[in-house]
Each structure stands twice: as structure tokens, then as C-alpha cells.
Design a protein around this nucleic acid. Structure first.
Length: 925
RNA sequence: GGGCCUGUAGCUCAGUUGGUUAGAGCGCACCCCUGAUAAGGGUGAGGUCGACUGUUCGACUCAGUCCAGGCCCA
């Protein structure tokens, strides 16, 4: 029974798979209450990393502990198959974008995802995770795509969905929207200009000879035609400063000096000083257009650069856009796909934005709005494909209105009813929902669920006949969402679907859904449409802290939006997997440790122990040192089991177990303590506090069993007659303890527990796998030991500790070596006397010495060396000779002619053995 | 920069409603055993409880500030 987990575990997996153990575990819980952990779908790319393994192992431990607590707890793993990362991988394999038709491109994406799903399944199984691996859910399943598209239609039908504008990264060269991940930053030289906006109305009106201006700074002159507001920081102080001509400028107090230093413009500061927040609602003149500009407030205004006043173009910046939303400003972006101005002054209309930069500079100069200008080299986003600088451009997108039908308020209310573990999760999700903008659902991509919208070819109106629209879902169910790309609008819609204008030709929407909408909809399918385990809401969602913004939120919004309630009853979150120094693992840092490496070097049970040993609510660290430490802990636990199994070789619980009443009191005491451990562990499993179970079990195995109980039992196990009442009592206790302990560790040490279970003697009712068993129940350990008797043993434990210290002292003085060479004289005062007399017969075994003498305390002996608290301990050499058989010393050794080298206990034991051999006709030990 | 979280011996984890010299296991040092032996047992040394400032008769435990690290945003 050597460990060698990396080799043994795969064999065990093979065996489990052949037996279809997962199915049989569920079958064994037929009729039991359901407990549903709904799996958050990972993204199928690359090899699983430590965080993914942590995720799956925790889920597995929850599912297993619930199963062992008596629930029917199926686990249906899933994958989030659509999305940009796969598209870019496939594009990389193809060599370029747009190399194949959309339908073919999607086929390749599907294939790519399938490939990695299969790799993941192997990886996850290797970790010992049990689940429905032969029927996982995939968001790219035809049925799934139909359900997701259907959910979008339902959102639309309920009136949540609207079309609005939002700025996205846009590449002028490729004429396409770019995702965050497709943008890379590079040095770029931009104009750096200071522009003045004349004040129409502001909270101050300084006396001046000239005019009154607000001063702004920008590196994108071309965004000025779309300038709709000036943003002030509510907490900054703003001042007025006068130039040589008597014009007065408004800017942040802390930016006055830097401005003069950078531009050489001389200004004289005036007395006025005013808080930024007062400028909300102020009004300004656009520098060259006939437009009034609003004063607004924004937290992102900084004092690092510029003037502390930010020109805001909601159509050309992410922050500007949110500010615009807040103040009801349009995401105005008067440029086309090539970046050419579609309206505005002749100076720049028809030019691209980069061509327009110098032209607008000229324009500003002519209008007298340019205060200063220079150049600035800074980090600027570029297209990762063509390496040209990109811009922010507002485009038409689909949104979910957070206020419609009180979605935001209801989501917060429902989140409040969820049990968040740890409970700060509630505050975190609530504050996020409270401040989040409308949900932008659309993506200008191909590999995803299409947004099912048709426009009339004639009048451009949207089709709103939902019965007809739902017809499309049938196509999806048959052919997958690929049908959207492979079939014409007329094929997809029922024959003769007409617009209210009378036309019958339609144009399909090109956008696809945000993948968060896919994953946010998983509960609609997995919790509902898999009839066998119908349970809505799920009992638990379990993911990392990044999912407060991700899956927890998207699932909640879909659940509340369509079902009026949260799809989960409780949410358990864990921390991040970090390296030994507490830094996140990354390729660039070169500190990545992969689960496959751990499995190969240490075994999956060790990786699971890594999870079980730490408080996962905070971040978890991984290091070689920790793995070494866990391996030591594992070996100790394993050897403890091994000793128990080795001593149960001739024990059949149904034939040899001793009745409760006949168990030795010492054994009953240890069983009581095991019962307590089991009881506490069940409570900890219930609260998902796995590390408490691990530490308590480890402590128990090391301290109570290995160093104490089992060590003491060796005498009984090795020297008593095999079938003697005393030895059978010990075996009964050891069997019950091992039987209980193996089930307590089964949720984390899945392979090792099964191995122990295999070698453990069983009763006829025991299941064949430890993973079908239930946690030890209170009544498995016999009647609990009387409290008074338990107290006696706790005192005897104190006695033992003190005797061990005295023995150590004797060892150092070379009086004895092994403890059996000792005789201990206990001088006891009244407090101890009664107890020691009562347990006198048990003392040599308990103290692991050959002889114990209990005597009154020596009067007047108070030197304090070994005597205190009414107990005096004196170590002497044991009397008599060493028994060859049991190694105890006894005066009786040599007195038995039949067995001259043996003590009186062994003489008796040998007699029993001979007698038993005679009765059964077989030999003894 | 903002929201949330974490910070107890070298490592992992306990520390009950604030109350006597802060506990455990591992590791380490030294010793013993050789019938769990690529084992087993014993003894012992390790902590200004992230830092500082308050509240209190008394704070690892309460409050505030800061530092370090993490997640998500900007």
C-alpha cells in the first residue's frame, strides 16, 4: 500500500468509470432531497490553470459532502463556448480575418471549442471531480442557442431592450469595432492643445476688462466638433486668472502653475476660489460651433495633466459616455466607418479625423480659441492587426434598460434575499448593481448567439411579430444558431411574414449577443429544461470573486428580468490562487504552476488537500514548500490508516466486534472522542468550512491516534491472544474509528479514501465505494461514555503528559532508554489517590511503562522538582527481566518452566492461544 | 484614484459576547526506539497578534488613520 498517487490515481479513475460510479451514487440517493450546485461555465481554451482547478475541486467537495450528508446532488458541468477569445484563436489559425465565410468560420470555432471541452473534461476528471461528464451543458448546443436567443426575444417582448449609441474602439483602416482585448498600446505623437470656451453663465462672474473663459486641454482636437460638455471635479478648487489683455480664465487652482510652465502663457491669479461642484449646470460657448455647452461633474477629472476641466464628447470616450448618460447627453459622433466627418463646418467635413486635427487647430486659431499648442508623445491604443491608431466612436448598440419594470430595484431586492457566503458578498453585488449602466448586449462579432432582429428592407422598421420571430428558434434547434448565417431572412421567418408597410423582404441584424448574456441564461436551461433535476432556483452558485461583475450579476439580471427572481439561493465565493509571494500567477511573471504539474509530481489528492487545508474565502497561496508540507501531512494520515488496516487483518466486524457493554472503558472513551470529531466535522461541512475538517482530522490522527491511542494499543494488539476479549475490544474501536475517519476525509482525499475503503473490513450493508457512503452518524460509536468517566480519562491524560516529561528527564540522565525500562512511582495526595487507585490496572499500558506503584505522597517533600499539584512522579529502573515476547520487564520472567523467557501476561496469552488452536484444530499466531 | 476583501509563530490553521503567562499541527533542534520501519515515540526552542493613534481599569479582539497584498472598476 505504497502511496505513489500519480500512478495509482489514473487506475482508480479507470475503475470508477467502468463501474459508472457517478451514476450509481445518484441512483443510491433515489428519493432523497435534491441539492443543486449549478456550475458556472468556464471558457474552453488552453490548459486549465490553478484557479480553474480550485474552482472545480471546491465544487466537487461541496457536491460530495452534500451527497455524504444524504442529499441527491447531481453535478452537471458546463462550458461557455462562444466569444472573442475563440474567434481570435481561430483567426490566428486561419492567418487572417475574413478568410472564410461566416458559416464556415463558425464551424471552425465550434470545432475549436469542442476540442478544448474534451481536453478540459480529461483535466477535470483527473482531479477526481465527479459529474455528468458524458452529458455536460454547452452554450453552443443547438438547444442552448435556441434558448439563449429565446431569452433575448423574451427580454425584447417584455420591453427591456432598446437601441442606443455607445462608444467602442474603432479601427478606421479595418472599418471595424474592436474589443478591449484587440487593442494594444503604443507610443503615438498627438497634438497637445489648450482651448478656451467662453462662459455664458457660471457661479462666479469676475470683473474684467476682456472676456471670461473656461480653459481646457486635449490631445484629440478632432473630438471638439462632438464636444457637448465641460466636466469639473466636484471636490477640486477652481480659480480665475487674468491675462495681459484682461481676459479671465477659469481652471483648477493646482493646475495654474503647471499650465504657465508648460505654455509660457502668463496669467495673474485673482481672488475668486470656488468648488468644482458649483459648476454643475453652468453654460459655455462652443469654440467654433453655434452650440451651448453644459457644465457637468465627473470623478475621473484629475490634476495630473490639463486644466482640471475636461472637454467631454460622449460619442468619443468611455468616461465621456457615462457622464453623458448621467446628464442625458447624446452619444454624438458625426463620423462614418472610415472616420470621415459627415457634418460640421466646411473646414473639416469629409476629412478623416486624423486629417482634421491640423485643420481644426487652424480653425481654433482663426476663431481666437486656441490658447497654446504643442506636441505630446504618449501611449495610445492601436489596432493589433493593422497597427494603426484607433479611435473611440459611438455606434448603435442593443441595451437592456436597467430601469424598465424596476429591473435594478428588483435585482437588488432579490440579491438581498440570497445567502452570500461570506456575507460581504451582499454589499458588493448590491453596490455594483446600484451603479452599473444599462447592459450593452450587442457585439459586432460572429461566434455567438445572433440577436434575432429583422429590419424591413423597405421602410427599415423592426419586425415586432414575436410569434413569427420565435419561428427562428425552431431553426436554431434543428441547425444551431449557424442557421442565422446560412439561411436567408425569408427562410428563417414563416412564409409570408410582412411588415406593416406591406413589404415582405427583411434584413437580418448582424450583431451577436454578449457572451455574458449566454452564461447569464444557463439557469434557464440547466435548472429548468433538464427535467431530471428540475430545481429553480439552484441551491448554490460557487465562483471566484471576479464573478460579482460577471456571472453572479448576469445570471441575477436574467433571472429577475424573466422569472422575477434570483436563480440562486446562496452564493459561495473563494479567493484568488496566488504564488508563494502572494502575487497572481502570470506568464509574464513566469510563476505559473499548472494543476497538471502538481498531479504529475504529487497527485490529485495532494492538490485537493491544498484546497482543503486553507481558508479559501481569502486568497490561496501555492508553493513548493506548501506542497512538501501537505505531502508530509498526507503521509502521516496515510500511515495512520495503514496501521489501523494492518491490525484489522483478522477482524470481521460482524463476527468479531465486541458488544458495546464489553468494550474496554479506554476504547469507549476514544470512540466518544471520535464521535465528537465526526459531529463537529459534519457541522463544518455544512458550512463549507473544509479547512476546519482537515485540520481537526489531521490533529486527531497525529495526536490522538498515532502518538497516543494506537501507540498504546500496540501492546494489546501484538501481545494479547488474537481472539481475546481485550484485543477484540481494541479492534472493534479501531475499526469503527477508521470506518468513520475515512468517510470524513472522503470529500477531499477522494482517491486515498477509496483505497482505504477497499482494504477496510466491511459489514454486509456497507456500500462498495466510500463515495456512496454517508458521513458517520452519532450512533455509530456506541453509547457515549459517561461524562464523569470521560473526565477521569482527561485527568489521566494530564498524568500521562507529566510522566512523559519525567521519563524524558530520566532518558537524558541515561537511567533508561525505552520507556518500558521504567518503573514509575506515583506519590499521590488525596486529590489524585482515588483516581489512580481506581485505574491502577490500566496505568502501565497508559503510561507505557513496565511497572507503576501508587503510594501516598512523601510527607514534607516539597522540593518542587517533580512534585506539584498533589502529584509526585519518580522514575526508577523497572524490576525483573525483560520479557522476550512483550518487552515489558517483570519479576516473573524465568519462573515458567514451559516458557522461561516470558512474563506472566504472555504466559497467560500463550495459554489462550494454545487452547484456541486446540479447539479449532488450527495453529495460533 | 474608487468599491470590496485579506494581513495571528518559517508554513497552514484555531482563538468563544474585549479579561489572567496567545493555542494546534507541520517544519526545525536535541533525544529515544527498531514488531506502522522509504516507519514510530518523547522533549524543546520559535509570535511586540501588519503599523500607528484612540476608546477602555483592561484590546489579537472595538473605532480611526496608514502600510502591504488581492479582486473588480477607472
Amino acid at each position: 500500500m505504497k502511496a505513489n498517487l500519480p500512478e495509482a490515481e489514473p487506475r482508480q479513475l479507470e475503475d470508477w468509470n467502468q463501474k459508472r460510479l457517478y451514476d450509481r451514487i445518484l441512483a443510491s440517493r433515489e428519493g432523497a432531497p435534491l441539492y443543486i450546485l449549478h456550475d458556472g461555465p468556464p471558457y474552453p481554451t488552453g490548459e486549465i490553470h490553478l484557479g480553474t482547478a480550485l474552482n472545480k475541486i471546491l465544487k466537487d467537495m461541496v457536491v460530495r459532502s452534500k451527497t455524504m450528508a444524504g442529499f441527491r446532488a447531481p453535478y452537471i458541468p458546463g462550458w461557455d463556448c462562444h466569444g472573442l477569445p475563440i474567434e481570435t484563436q481561430v483567426e490566428k489559425e486561419l492567418g487572417r480575418k475574413g478568410a472564410v465565410e461566416p458559416a464556415e468560420f463558425r464551424r471552425l470555432c465550434r470545432k475549436f471549442a469542442s476540442r478544448y471541452v474534451e481536453a478540459h473534461i480529461r483535466d477535470f476528471q483527473r482531479l477526481g471531480v465527479f459529474g455528468q461528464w458524458d452529458a455536460p451543458y454547452l452554450t453552443m448546443d443547438f438547444d442552448f442557442e435556441a434558448r439563449i436567443a429565446g431569452a433575448f426575444l423574451e427580454f425584447q417582448e417584455k420591453g427591456y431592450v432598446y437601441r442606443g449609441k455607445k462608444p467602442v474602439y474603432w479601427c478606421l483602416h479595418d472599418r471595424t469595432a474592436l474589443a478591449e482585448a484587440e487593442v494594444e498600446y503604443d507610443e503615438h505623437v498627438s497634438p497637445s492643445i489648450w482651448v478656451r470656451y467662453e462662459v455664458i453663465q457660471a457661479p462666479i462672474d469676475p470683473q474684467r476688462r476682456g472676456r471670461f473663459y473656461a480653459l481646457i486641454w486635449t490631445t484629440t482636437p478632432w473630438t471638439l466638433p462632438a464636444s457637448l460638455a465641460l466636466a469639473f471635479h466636484p471636490d477640486f478648487k477652481y480659480v480665475a486668472a487674468e491675462d495681459a489683455e484682461g481676459n479671465v480664465y477659469l481652471l483648477a487652482e493646482d493646475r495654474l502653475e503647471p499650465f504657465m510652465a508648460e505654455t509660457g502663457v502668463q496669467l495673474t491669479r485673482r481672488a475668486e476660489r470656488i468648488e468644482g461642484r458649483k459648476f454643475e449646470g453652468a453654460r459655455f460657448h462652443h469654440p467654433f460651433l453655434d452650440r451651448e455647452i453644459a457644465g457637468v461633474l465627473a470623478d475621473y477629472v484629475t490634476l495630473d495633466q490639463g486644466t482640471g476641466i475636461v472637454h467631454t464628447a460622449p460619442g468619443h470616450g468611455a468616461e465621456d459616455f457615462y457622464t453623458g448618460q448621467k446628464y442625458g447627453l447624446e452619444a454624438y459622433a458625426p463620423i462614418d466607418d472610415e472616420g470621415r466627418f459627415t457634418e460640421g463646418l466646411d473646414d473639416y467635413r469629409g476629412k478623416t479625423v486624423f486629417e482634421a486635427n491640423p485643420l481644426i487647430l487652424d480653425l481654433l486659431r482663426r476663431r481666437g480659441a486656441l490658447v497654446a499648442s504643442s506636441k505630446l508623445s504618449h501611449s495610445y491604443p492601436h489596432c493589433w492587426r493593422c497597427h494603426n491608431p484607433v479611435i473611440f466612436r459611438a455606434t448603435e448598440q442593443w441595451f437592456v434598460n436597467m430601469e424598465h419594470r424596476d429591473l435594478r430595484r428588483k435585482a437588488i431586492e432579490n440579491a438581498d434575499g440570497v445567502q452570500w457566503i461570506p456575507d460581504w458578498g451582499r454589499d458588493r453585488i448590491e453596490s455594483m448593481i446600484r451603479t452599473r449602466p444599462d447592459w450593452c448586449l450587442s457585439r459586432q462579432r460572429m461566434w455567438g448567439t445572433p440577436i434575432v432582429v429583422f429590419y424591413c428592407d423597405e421602410c427599415g422598421k423592426r419586425l415586432e411579430d414575436f410569434a413569427a420571430l420565435k419561428h427562428v428558434l425552431d431553426w436554431f434547434r434543428r441547425e444551431g444558431a449557424d442557421a442565422w448565417f446560412a439561411r436567408s431572412a425569408e427562410e428563417l421567418l414563416p412564409a409570408g411574414t410582412r411588415c406593416s408597410c406591406g413589404a415582405g423582404r427583411w434584413r437580418k441584424e448582424n450583431d451577436i449577443l454578449d457572451v455574458w448574456f449566454d452564461s447569464g441564461s444557463t439557469h434557464l436551461v440547466v435548472l429548468d429544461y433538464r427535467d431530471a433535476y428540475h430545481r429553480f432556483p439552484a441551491d448554490i452558485y460557487l465562483e471566484g470573486p471576479d464573478q460579482f461583475r460577471g456571472w453572479f450579476q448576469s445570471s441575477l439580471l436574467v433571472g429577475v428580468g424573466l422569472r422575477e427572481r434570483s436563480p440562486y439561493r446562496s452564493v459561495l465565493t473563494y479567493g484568488w490562487a496566488l504564488d508563494a509571494d502572494g502575487r497572481p500567477m502570470s506568464k509574464s511573471l513566469g510563476n505559473v504552476i499548472l494543476p497538471s504539474e502538481i498531479c504529475q509530481k504529487w497527485g490529485a489528492d495532494l492538490l485537493r488537500l491544498w484546497v482543503a487545508s486553507q481558508d479559501y474565502h481569502a486568497d490561496l497561496r501555492m508553493s513548493d514548500r506548501m506542497m512538501t508540507q501537505l505531502a508530509e501531512a498526507y503521509r502521516k494520515l496515510r500511515n495512520t490508516f495503514r496501521w489501523a488496516l494492518g491490525n484489522l487483518g483478522d477482524f470481521n466486524p460482524e463476527r468479531d466486534a465486541v458488544a458495546d457493554a464489553d468494550l474496554w472503558e479506554f476504547d469507549r472513551w476514544m470512540l466518544s472522542r471520535t464521535a465528537e470529531l465526526a459531529e463537529r466535522s459534519r457541522g463544518w461541512y455544512d458550512k463549507f468550512e473544509f479547512q476546519r475538517v482537515f485540520h481537526a482530522v489531521q490533529d486527531f490522527a497525529v495526536v490522538d491516534l498515532s502518538a497516543f491511542y494506537f501507540d498504546i494499543l500496540k501492546d494489546r494488539m501484538y501481545t494479547f491472544a488474537p481472539a481475546s476479549a481485550g484485543r477484540r475490544s481494541a479492534q472493534t474501536a479501531v475499526w469503527r474509528i477508521a470506518h468513520a475517519l475515512v468517510r470524513l476525509v472522503a470529500p477531499f482525499l477522494v482517491f486515498t479514501a477509496e483505497e482505504v475503503w477497499k482494504y477496510l473490513p466491511h459489514r454486509s450493508g456497507d456500500p462498495e465505494s466510500v463515495h456512496m457512503a454517508r458521513f458517520p452518524a452519532a450512533d455509530e460509536f456506541g453509547a457515549p461514555l459517561d461524562e464523569r468517566l470521560g473526565a477521569n480519562w482527561n485527568r489521566l491524560l494530564v498524568l500521562r503528559e507529566r510522566v512523559l516529561r519525567a521519563l524524558e528527564a530520566a532518558r537524558n540522565e541515561k537511567l533508561i532508554a525505552g520507556s518500558l525500562e521504567a518503573k514509575v512511582r506515583l506519590g499521590a495526595s488525596d486529590g489524585w489517590r482515588e483516581l489512580l487507585e481506581a485505574y491502577r490496572a490500566s496505568l502501565p499500558a497508559l503510561l507505557q511503562v513496565s511497572q507503576v506503584e501508587v503510594a501516598p505522597m512523601r510527607p514534607g517533600d516539597g522540593d518542587g522538582s517533580a512534585a506539584h499539584d498533589g502529584l509526585e512522579i519518580e522514575v526508577q529502573r523497572a524490576e525483573g527481566a525483560k520479557c522476550e515476547r512483550c518487552w515489558n520487564y517483570s519479576l516473573a520472567v524465568g519462573t515458567f518452566t514451559e516458557y522461561p523467557t516470558v512474563c506472566e501476561r504472555c504466559f497467560a496469552a500463550l495459554g489462550e492461544i494454545v487452547q484456541a488452536a486446540g479447539e479449532s484444530g488450527k495453529s495460533g499466531r
